[in-house]
């Protein structure tokens, strides 16, 4: 048998300074292991969200959502700037503050997660690309977590950057910028903390939905459906369980105006209301983080636990689905 010489036969010699066709060459450099493979999948996830190396539609998607989440911040900053340039007091007009911001962008963030997020997992499954990852030096879970973190990076940017811009504009437009930072130092860590929670919420929902189906559209619909169906259960449940006394005092569940209200123990209506995840997220967790607890009937700890449970459950689904390639 005329087997080729073992090891690597040099077919084409590479000389320094050559720029023309070298064809196939042997590679003798370093070969990374799982860590490098993990980073490569993460980087590819970032490129995928940005649409790099992909078509025009993929490139536009990220840009459009980026503009949409930044839009309100740009608007607020512009209006405040316009007012102050005419010598008006910006405090006089009710411009949204940090704690109001996610009221404006939560639905955009949710749509971003639903539409763009599944692109990081579902198509690889649908197009059998996973079988190529299965023969690379990484484990199935490395792949899934690298993808999860790639989307999480964008989710963090989309939640934090607009708020940070807002904060910067508040600092710069204040008569005493340093004084503003001193007085509002808490806002900074709140921006970071809520960014982290909201990003984890969006990412875990999108990735869990994507891990359950190889069709992107189903995953997108799944994310939206999950939020709406749980909200419907929370809403109807709240209506059914609301006591007459409660209704007389406060009207419908959740309509608490500016009063600081804590639910009396055992008031089931308020707890089932936690299933309205956007309310729980925005009014329960987000406002609480910014030190404003006037808008939610139950203790913020219950809101935080509800969101944590959703994040943990959804993350668990993703981990389970990617415990092994082809599993």
């Amino acid at each position: 048998m005329n087997a080729p010489v073992s090891g690597h036969v040099v077919g084409l010699e590479q000389r320094e300074g050559e720029v023309f066709d070298l064809g196939y060459r042997h590679y003798d450099g370093p070969r990374g292991g799982r860590g490098k493979a993990f980073m490569a999948v993460y980087d590819d996830g970032i490129r995928s969200v940005l649409g790099l190396g992909r078509g025009v539609a993929a490139k536009m998607m990220c840009g459009i959502f980026g503009l949409l989440v930044l839009g309100p911040a740009i608007f607020i900053i512009s209006v405040a700037g316009f007012m102050s340039s005419f010598g008006g007091e910006t405090d006089e007009i009710p411009l949204p503050k940090h704690e109001d911001y996610y009221v404006l962008t939560f639905i955009i963030l949710l749509l971003f997660a639903a539409i763009v997020g599944p692109a990081l997992l579902s198509p690889d499954k649908r197009n059998s690309v996973l079988s190529l990852y299965a023969v690379r030096p990484l484990k199935s879970l490395d792949y899934a977590i690298a993808r999860w973190l790639a989307f999480f990076t964008f989710a963090m940017a989309f939640t934090i950057v607009p708020q940070a811009l807002l904060y910067l504009s508040f600092v710069l437009s204040d008569d005493s910028p340093l004084g503003y930072i001193k007085d509002h130092g808490r806002d900074l860590w709140a921006i970071f903390a809520i960014g982290l929670i909201l990003a984890a919420f969006m990412t875990s929902l999108a990735m869990a939905a994507a891990s359950l189906t190889s069709r992107r559209a189903f995953a997108s619909a799944g994310v939206i459906a999950f939020v709406f169906i749980t909200a419907a259960i929370g809403g109807f449940g709240g209506e059914i369980l609301t006591s007459d006394q409660d209704r007389e005092e406060h009207g419908a569940v959740g309509n608490y105006g500016d009063e600081e209200v804590q639910a009396p123990d055992g008031d089931a209506a308020h707890y089932i209301h936690l299933l309205i995840l956007p309310d729980t997220m925005i009014d329960g967790v987000s406002r609480w983080t910014f030190g404003d607890r006037a808008h939610f009937p139950v203790s913020p700890w219950y809101s935080a636990m509800t969101i944590a449970a959703v994040i943990a459950g959804a993350f668990g689904i993703t981990v389970f689905r990617y415990r092994k390639f082809g599993g």
């Binding site: 590679y27 450099g29 370093p30 070969r31 990374g32 292991g33 490098k36 493979a37 490569a40 999948v41 980087d43 590819d44 490129r47 790099l52 190396g53 992909r54 078509g55 993929a58 198509p123 690889d124 197009n127 059998s128 690309v129 079988s131 190529l132 990852y133 690379r136 030096p137 990484l138």
Partner: peptide, 25 residues
């Protein structure tokens, strides 16, 4: 593999580079 396994919306240059990196290069 025997079956199709290439992401249709990605260019060959992008994908082949990516696969080389996942292999540790």
């Amino acid at each position: 593999p025997e079956y199709e396994c290439l992401p249709p919306n990605v260019s060959a240059a992008e994908f082949t580079t990516h696969m080389a990196r996942v292999s540790g290069l």
